[in-house]
């Protein structure tokens, strides 16, 4: 992909640096004009560590000290905001960590995009959703892959067992991000990486930035895995709703299959993530337990913020359908 369209002075300056090159000692970044400008800049800086940009002047910019310094400032601001939001939602803790984490996730009440797609959405709305979801789904599981070398033996083996399934068990045809790409193409959308970045809102940039923040910092390994657990634990049933909604609208089998795959896969993954990955991590490193809940909260909260934005875009009020159980649906689903 090319560097994304700037959303203010800071993202414009970073784009220019990425495309034209950057002196080692530059330190005059403009102030971000808005939350959007800051979030896009951070997303762009993170992207240097994923697939990068075709118009990058020099691939070594990935580790340029001035870009890393700027990233650090933006990350501090993001983490501070995320922790402030979490501060009012301390978990109830008992002797059973897995029970507590499952209960914490299920007690979070949020808006659901999947519930709307299930019964009410029209085709255009579903295509809107697929476009903005594509930013994450085309790098599905990648932010969590960074956590692997930072873990002790038990949770490391458990995380790789889950990730192996995400990455298709060695078969590229089953790699989840690839299933998504096939679904996008079949639905008549662009499947190339980052194709729809310019139309995603702050809420989507923040969801993606939070995953990269947690994945890239060893210090935040607990949050990364708590995020994973909450994501997986809120995916199976919303994925079923998505699959049924897409079938109702006659969308192609490939994109329906993506969601169907996640019904059963994530019913497994939620158990692995909560019990074997987070549970074992907390046994060995009890000091990260609170960060596991912080990560779980962040996943649910950012999905709720996204869902409210998406529903508002469609002119749908939350809880429009009293018969439909509301649920948070960050997983592959909503």
């Amino acid at each position: 992909m090319l560097t994304p369209k700037a959303r203010g002075a800071l993202s414009a300056a970073v784009n220019e640096a990425l495309c034209a090159g950057l002196a080692d000692d530059r330190c005059d970044w403009p102030v971000a004009e808005s939350g959007d400008d800051a979030a896009l800049t951070l997303w762009t800086l993170y992207e240097l560590h994923y697939r990068g940009f075709e118009d990058l002047a020099d691939e070594s910019l990935e580790w340029h000290p001035e870009l890393l310094r700027l990233r650090r400032l933006l990350e501090r601001d993001l983490e501070r905001r995320l922790r402030e939001r979490y501060s009012a939602y301390a978990p109830h803790r008992s002797a059973d960590f897995a029970d507590d984490l499952f209960a914490y996730v299920s007690s979070h009440d949020g808006a659901s995009v999947a519930a709307h797609v299930h019964r009410h959405a029209d085709r255009e709305q579903v295509l809107d959703l697929l476009r903005v979801r594509s930013i994450y789904h085309l790098k599905e599981a990648d932010p969590t892959a960074w956590v692997v070398p930072r873990l002790p033996v038990g949770p490391k083996a458990a995380l790789v067992e889950l990730q192996y399934d995400e990455y298709g068990v060695g078969d590229p045809n089953r790699l989840h991000a690839h299933l998504w790409a096939l679904g996008m193409e079949a639905a008549g959308l662009r499947a190339d990486y980052g194709a729809y970045l310019d139309e995603v809102p702050l809420e989507v940039l923040e969801q993606n930035n939070a995953m990269s923040l947690f994945g890239l910092h060893r210090r935040l390994r607990g949050a990364a895995l708590g995020h994973l657990a909450a994501f997986e634990a809120t995916s199976s049933m919303p994925s079923r709703r998505m699959a049924q909604g897409l079938e109702r609208l006659g969308l192609p089998a490939e994109i329906v299959d993506y969601y169907t795959e996640h019904v059963e896969a994530d019913a497994v993954h939620e158990q692995l993530a909560v019990r074997n990955i987070c549970g074992r991590l907390v046994e060995v490193e009890p000091g990260v337990a609170d960060d596991v809940f912080f990560g779980a909260f962040t996943c649910l909260d950012l999905e709720d913020r996204f869902a409210r934005w998406m529903l508002a875009q469609w002119g749908v009020s939350e809880g429009q359908d009293p018969d439909e159980e509301r649920d948070v649906a960050p997983g592959s689903a909503a």
Binding site: S235, E264, D266
Partner: peptide, 25 residues
């Protein structure tokens, strides 16, 4: 079909014999 499978034990899954998370509700 996957390295680890979840077999339903509540009998209310819509994907029997596999778990689809229904037990949680």
């Amino acid at each position: 079909e996957r390295p680890v499978s979840a077999v339903c034990r509540c009998s209310r899954s819509a994907s029997l014999p596999w778990c689809d998370g229904t037990h949680k509700v």
